[in-house]
Design a protein around this nucleic acid. Structure first.
Lengths: 340, 340
DNA sequence: CTGAAAGCGCTTACAG
DNA sequence: CTGAAAGCGCTTACAG
């Protein structure tokens, strides 16, 4: 064993010199190509073992013109919903022989852009983006020069691109209809900023369900705004005040639901509660939390598949795919309004 | 605007030709180096804009000898604990100008090895690994040739390497002492496979706390095995059977705690419950779930920092750093044993 | 201030 | 079957 100098790795050239063969012969052996005599191959293998050679894939990929890697840009990889998306994307990537870069935009359009551009500069083969920014035209040149981008959870703004979304409006319609079926007429909607696509769609679903049931919507029942707990807590409290409080609450995402649960825990009379997004332990609460659950695995898997279809040459129009949601009844939304 | 051919990106050479300057001048402008006359710089910038040139960082990095990327190998990026580690590692990586690869070993030593080797073949600057395998000697050549590896959550097996761990034994000691202080004498321990380092350490902490309080441990109180819910449910049920059931339960990780909660939910008489690992909504359960919480942000951050210290030339002995845990009392472990 | 040459570690295309 | 040459898209080292 010739010890390699610390921090310096042997190259194919080193192996070739050691084995006394040409560089290309080493390449052939390393890549398992045919047409090398057993004797030559053996000499090369011996040199490889002696030097501890391992092919540098970054160099190989530079020559090849691809990087065999894709990037996933999330809101926050530390968030359970995001991380489930990541796992699904990773599974498809591995299946396709790709490695996965991940990055968190922290809901910051500027950071999203910087990260996306950094990934593009590395020449990732493609990108999956859960967008935070409000304008994605900066990606147009990248897409035009052959780097496909698929948007996940929210559509792109300002460019035409594939988007894989939950059926936000449909799921909410179904959920609100469920509340109505249990006798509720005054239903509150607590959402995040209405400029966010998912919130807007869920609100639309809420309004449609009410309209279909010929129920009026009092605008005071709709509380949208930032997701910070104090704001949400105030909004929930306000909906439950006055002579005609709402009898049911639809909380439009997981963080809002968690905050609302905390507020309601301190109350004797609790409205029916229906959350958008499932939560860990939801079935162990008292009562169990009824939710409109998204399917993060299907969302991530579909996004990755569409991306690889693009990478494999699919050139059709930008697609918009909606993944169904599922209403999971566990008790919190199956109580009627108080009598009288 | 000269439209670039679809899928083909302009290179510095293209820019140089278009601007009628040398390649090196383009490189200077692109990298903001000084010593270029304003007129030249302007011509280069114009050519860059016309062609839509963007530097290929993969090529640049090949020449430079580093990849400005690190890899994080987790058990499952989709698991909340893992994903919080990932976010912390990412934050440090970004701070250091590095991009982050992530991969999930799925608790499979072979897959861990394949992924780790794939990352090494890409010549990532360093690796953070939450190990699943039982032998990491395959990494020795990589480490020797200058790719630092830091182990996270569990130590390496078979090689000497940095390891960032939770204070598993200490945290459990503190938790069990807490139960003892509330009057418990018969305390059950439900863990996963005792071969897993974290389980072994937590079990050690349990035994030490009992010994310090001069309490005997009946081996029937210790139930270790696979984490699948049926096994855990049976184990919990058995501990609560018989004439002298345990009066308190320590569940040694988040999944076991979740399963135990489900089992206990169906019972009138519930033992005190203390979980290792915090859970979302833990404070909204009835009673609130008392836990020994790990600090995933500190774990991930510390691992990444140690890795970058190695990358910056730190060559001291392998370090083993323990991150403190925190006992969060919420009610489930603060009830004494039934009278009599 | 400017740029031609060599090289990072591989693969591709081609000649022997 | 084998290998020398050119090139992937950049940077480094050096000469003008």
């Amino acid at each position: 064993m010739t010890p390699t100098r610390h921090g310096t790795r042997p190259t194919m050239n080193d192996v070739a010199a050691r084995a006394g063969v040409g560089l290309k012969t080493v390449s052939r052996v390393v890549n398992g190509e045919s047409g090398v005599t057993p004797a030559m191959a053996e000499r090369v293998r011996a040199a490889i073992a002696e030097l501890g050679f391992r092919r540098n894939d970054s160099a190989r990929l530079l020559r090849t013109g691809r990087t065999a890697s894709i990037a996933l840009l999330l809101e926050d990889i530390g968030d359970p919903f995001s991380s489930q998306l990541a796992r699904a994307v990773e599974d498809v990537a591995v299946e396709q022989g790709c490695l996965l870069f991940t990055g968190s935009s922290a809901e910051d359009g500027e950071r999203e852009r910087e990260l996306a551009m950094a990934f593009c500069a590395r020449r990732v083969d493609g990108l999956v983006i859960v967008p935070s920014g409000t304008d994605h035209s900066y990606l147009e040149p990248e897409i035009a020069s052959g780097t496909p981008v698929v948007f996940l959870d929210r559509p792109a703004a300002g460019i035409d691109a594939d988007a894989i979304l939950s059926d936000n409006a449909g799921g909410t319609r179904q959920g609100v209809a469920h509340l109505i079926r249990h006798g509720h007429r005054r239903i509150g909607f607590v959402g995040d900023l209405p400029g966010i696509h998912t919130c807007a769609e869920r609100l639309r679903g809420y309004r449609e369900a009410m309209a279909r049931a010929h129920l009026p919507v009092d605008e005071r029942w709709v509380a949208t705004g930032p997701t910070d707990p104090p704001r949400v807590a105030r909004a929930v409290a306000r909906l439950l005040e006055g002579p005609e409080p709402v009898t049911a609450l639809l909380t439009a995402n997981n963080r809002i639901t968690a905050t609302a649960l905390g507020v309601l825990a301190g109350r004797d009379v609790r409205p029916a509660l229906l959350g958008f997004d499932d939560l860990e332990l939801a079935e162990l609460l008292t009562p169990g939390l009824t939710v409109i659950a998204q399917d993060p695995a299907a969302l991530g898997r579909t996004a990755a598949r569409v991306l690889f279809e693009r990478l494999h040459g699919e050139t059709g129009q930008a697609r918009r795919i909606e993944i169904p949601t599922r209403l999971i009844a566990r008790g919190s939304a199956e109580t009627g309004p108080p009598a009288g």
